[in-house]
């Protein structure tokens, strides 16, 4: 059974890249465009195995989204990977304190992405 990944990113480019890499690796991908949308999608979709989220997004940023997921009884045990850049050590820490499980450094190559997903997905 294919694992399900929810990706939350306001950039079409990034969503498409994630879709391409994850799809090629056999994951089922569900997409959301920002934090608010991400929480909405979570309410209706099948349990994702992993969530991947961007940090800088309109309406609700990645920090707010992660906190929202961790407050949800249904999803609080779901691993969340944040997309970040190497220089964003402060943001990485903020994301972790909001409850992020791990991170993916942008720009990512597909192998590293899949590797990070595998590391947190049961």
């Amino acid at each position: 059974m294919s694992k399900i990944v929810l990706t939350v990113d306001d950039s079409r480019t990034m969503r498409d890249m994630l879709m391409l890499a994850l799809g090629d690796a056999g994951f089922t991908v569900v997409q959301a465009v920002d934090g608010v949308h991400g929480l909405e999608v979570l309410e209706s979709m099948a349990m994702p195995d992993v969530i991947i989220t961007d940090i800088n997004m309109p309406r609700m940023d990645g920090f707010g989204f992660i906190e929202g997921v961790r407050k949800s009884e249904r999803h609080r045990a779901t691993p969340i990977l944040v997309l970040t850049t190497e220089s964003d050590s402060v943001k990485k820490e903020r994301a972790r304190s909001a409850g992020a499980t791990g991170w993916i450094v942008k720009p990512f190559n597909p192998d590293k992405l899949i590797d990070a997903v595998r590391r947190v997905a049961a």
């Binding site: 306001d10 950039s11 480019t13 990034m14 890249m17 800088n56 997309l83 850049t85 942008k106 720009p107 990512f108």
Partner: peptide, 11 residues
């Protein structure tokens, strides 16, 4: 930020 992110992906 978004432009930089995508640009990074395409080197």
């Amino acid at each position: 930020h978004s432009i930089k992110g995508g640009a990074g992906a395409f080197s």
